[in-house]
Design a protein around this nucleic acid. Structure first.
Lengths: 118, 118
DNA sequence: CAGGATCCAAAAGGATACTG
DNA sequence: CAGTATCCTTTTGGATCCTG
């Protein structure tokens, strides 16, 4: 087994900093968010990294981008695809595993996590 | 949500380079391997990284280390714990997800993966 | 509004040699 | 055998400013 293995690549991908956070943020509420909404919702992320990760997620087919350029300024929307939503189930399993085995590591205990719908 | 979130930390942890590979290697065969067995089974890994990851995995309680220092040279064994084995199920779900959504990304097609029991 | 460009700091990993 | 120590390269991310 090496890096060309699908599982390795998958874990590597979602293990990247910010990726999971973006995925989680997108799965809250309506499932669709705009670039600046994400930026506000994710404290500390820089525009460069956010757009980098969004491109990666789109390239993996986990999110879909929609551009409304009919007016100025342009508006962009990002939505979880079916694949992205299904991956979310795996994330939830990871949560269950974490809660079962890491008792001292409380989930989303900080204020910015209060609305986490996981 | 931020980095103190359990899920984020979990994904970050298993997304680290080599971690998953080690986990997979350990779940083959008897479930127990020695340091040098792992090193041989995982081409390209350096001793430094391997021992680093093994310590991290042990610290997370996913593997257990057993030292036999009765004779020289010392022998060490690493075994998946219950927690580690349960995490393996999540890895297998990731595999299913990958196969469903990433058709062109064949699983373990290279020679070193031939014996992958996933 | 949604990023791209630039520059810089930090972290992670690789190569290799050595040891209890 | 099972690592540690050292040094060095590469990668990644952060800060900030700019623009169609």
């Amino acid at each position: 087994m090496d890096e060309s293995c699908t599982i390795y690549k998958t874990a590597d991908f979602i293990g990247k900093r910010w990726t999971l956070i973006i995925l989680l943020e997108l799965s809250k509420g309506s499932g669709t968010k705009r670039y600046n909404e994400l930026k506000k919702a994710i404290p500390g992320i820089t525009p460069k990294i956010l757009s980098e990760r969004l491109k990666e997620l789109e390239h993996e087919g986990m999110i879909k981008k929609r551009i409304d350029s009919s007016k100025f300024p342009i508006k962009c929307e990002y939505t979880l695809t079916k694949s992205g939503k299904e991956f979310f189930k795996i994330i939830q399993d990871m949560k269950k595993w974490s809660l079962k085995w890491k008792f001292n590591n409380k989930l989303c205990a900080n204020s910015s996590c209060e609305n986490c719908k996981l």
